[in-house]
Structures are given as structure tokens and as C-alpha cells.
């Protein structure tokens, strides 16, 4: 339950007006920091929902696949440049961001992760790699501003941020594929 409180505290911190203002003032902070942290807050809060609404997860997310699909739908929605503009201009879209990323992306993904095989995890990472590669290309090479609220340079910065996400995902996939990660589970007492 400690994790739930940390997640809730993070969510409330991110919702504070000065924090929101700062994180939304730079496009890269908005997309890669605020949205990512909202998603992380959901990951942290998942045990609470698992404890109190475990039946719902068992019924609707038995294989883990529905949770991943929901996560990807929410992710793809927030990858659309227009949605960021709307979040900045329409209050209920901003509210939707604070609801959807933690509760419809973070929470279901953590529940699904426990139910998925390692192969499926790699498939999810590869899907993310493809999505982020497209975003890299789009944001770096687009000749016009895609978000009305940000400048071209902000957009290119986000593109480069995506490029590093892709690099890290590729490295992680290689790490998982070519090293025995099971050796890093447990502690000395099991040796």
C-alpha cells in the first residue's frame, strides 16, 4: 500500500498549478516528463486497485492482453499532436489526461505485465519502438508546427527525445535477448 500513497502523492504533485505550468511550458517536459510521470503514478497505484477491485481485473484482464491494448490506445491517443493542444486549451481534456494516463494506461499495464510471458513483453517493447520511431521521424522532419502551442524547435526537441527512447528500448531488447536476466532475481540468501 505504500506504493499507492507514493503514486497518489505524485499525481497530486503533478496536478499543482505551478508544477503543471512549468511542465507544460516546454513541449519535451510536457510529453516526456509530465505524461511519463502520470503513467508512472498509475503504475505505483496499481496494487491498491488490485486489492480492492481484483475481481474486475480477473474478469476483464485475464490474459493481460486487454490491459496492454487499453494502454496502447491511451498511449497512441496522447501521441497525437492535437491532443496536447487541446489539453492546454480545454480544461476537461486536461482532466482527461490526468485520469487516462495513470488509471487507463499505468494501472492496466502493471496488471498485464504480471500475466505476460517474456516473449510478449518483448513484443510490447517492439511495438513501442515502432511507435516512437515514427514519432521521431514525424517530430524531427515535419516542416510545419504540429502543435499550435509550441515552436518548431520544441517539436524537434521532442523528436530527439523519442530517438533516445528508441535507442534505450533497442538496447533493452538486446539485453533481454542476449543475457540471462533470471540471474538478477532474488538475493544472496537464495544462493
Amino acid at each position: 500500500m505504500k506504493q499507492f500513497w507514493y503514486g497518489l502523492a505524485l499525481l497530486l504533485f503533478l496536478a499543482l498549478p505551478p508544477v503543471r505550468d512549468l511542465l507544460e511550458s516546454v513541449m519535451a517536459f510536457h510529453m516526456h516528463m509530465q505524461m511519463l510521470l502520470l503513467f508512472v503514478s498509475g503504475l505505483l497505484m496499481e496494487p491498491f486497485f488490485q486489492k480492492h477491485f481484483g475481481g474486475v481485473f480477473d474478469k476483464y484482464n485475464k490474459t493481460g492482453l486487454p490491459g496492454v491494448v487499453l494502454f496502447l490506445v491511451i498511449l497512441l491517443y496522447w501521441m497525437l499532436p492535437r491532443t496536447m493542444d487541446e489539453a492546454l486549451e480545454i480544461w476537461f481534456v486536461e482532466l482527461w489526461k490526468f485520469v487516462s494516463l495513470p488509471f487507463l494506461a499505468g494501472v492496466p499495464l502493471r496488471d498485464s505485465w504480471k500475466k505476460m510471458s517474456q516473449t510478449f513483453e518483448i513484443v510490447v517493447f517492439m511495438i513501442l519502438m515502432v511507435i516512437f520511431s515514427v514519432m521521431t521521424y514525424l517530430y524531427i522532419f515535419s516542416e510545419s508546427t504540429l502543435c499550435n502551442n509550441y515552436l518548431m524547435i520544441d517539436q524537434q526537441t521532442v523528436g530527439w527525445g523519442f530517438a533516445f527512447f528508441v535507442l534505450c528500448i533497442v538496447m533493452y531488447i538486446l539485453l533481454v535477448l542476449f543475457t540471462d536476466q533470471s540471474q538478477y532475481f532474488g538475493d544472496d540468501s537464495e544462493a
Binding site: V26, A28, F29, H32, M33, T157, W160, G161, F164, F165, L167, C168, M171, Y172, L175, T179, Y184
Partner: peptide, 17 residues
């Protein structure tokens, strides 16, 4: 291997902008 990837991610968070 994982720590190196995490470090690259955090460095990019700091320096890309």
C-alpha cells in the same frame, strides 16, 4: 547492462532539451 540503459535515458532527459 540495465543501469547503463537507465543512465542513458536520464542523461537524455537532462541534455536533449
Amino acid at each position: 547492462g540495465l543501469w547503463v540503459i537507465v543512465a542513458i535515458l536520464i542523461i537524455s532527459m537532462g541534455y536533449v532539451v
